[in-house]
Amino acid sequence: MQTALRTSLPETELASRANFAPQARMLREERPLQTSGLPLSIRGLRKSFGDNEVLRGIDLYIPAGQFVAIVGKSGCGKSTLLRLIAGLEKIDAGSISFGDAVQPEDIRVMFQEPRLLPWARVLSNVEVGLGRDRASADAHARAEKALTEVGLTDKRDQWPSVLSGGQKQRVALARALVSRPRVLAFDEPLGALDALTRISMQRLLERVWRDQGFTAILVTHDVSEAVALADRVLVIDEGRIAHDVTVNAARPRQRGSAELASLEGSILSHLLSADDRT
């Protein structure tokens, strides 16, 4: 954990200060032209488990390359929505389309648990992410490149069991990134990490999203994480989108700035008012 912080914090800090501020403004205007991401349109999406209707008609359009955070209290259906987008559950009614012919490798998910194979070395765990390209000649090189992106090149021959929680999650991120996905879904990927590792992971997520331009969908219960990372925050309540909040703050974002804090406050009050009703 300690080493993870030391290696990644200054690096992300430097990179974001040096390159991203001007680039960010450019991206903001021209994102649809530059992005590799896929747009996502969801119409009338419903899902129930037994008698329990979890999603009750979701209509949503996500432009290509947007970073969307989904928040809501537990059991509101946010994880189900993400699992439907990732194709992990069957849709009951409605549709999800990506506006393009999608390959399985185009959509990747990162979970709260790293889900690494304990019996495979770090590098071969990353190679798993290549999907059908696993057997190709450049598999090794691509996996190494992805490991470099998350700053873990020196751990390539380690067993996952010797890594810290944050390092395991970074390997899982490298595995998700290695196939150059166009949609990346995060299901509370930082939920199990300590506060400091969390912040460094958030910066890492923001950096790879900017570098690669995929469409990012982040399910989280941490509203401050949502406003720090996302272009747009969706509040889900009782299976519907209750609020759709745009976050206009310029990147790189100052954690704890008044602008973000007030946004966070208003989103929290939405969440709490929903809580009062029940």
């Binding site: 990732a86 992990l88 979970f111 889900r115 194979l117 999907g131």
Partner: peptide, 21 residues
């Protein structure tokens, strides 16, 4: 089962899933 789900998401065939997971 989470590892098995992971293997499926990453497009492992049945034999690969058996061999690797």
């Amino acid at each position: 089962p989470q590892l098995i789900e992971m293997g499926r998401i990453y497009g492992m065939t049945d034999s690969e899933l058996f061999r690797r997971v």
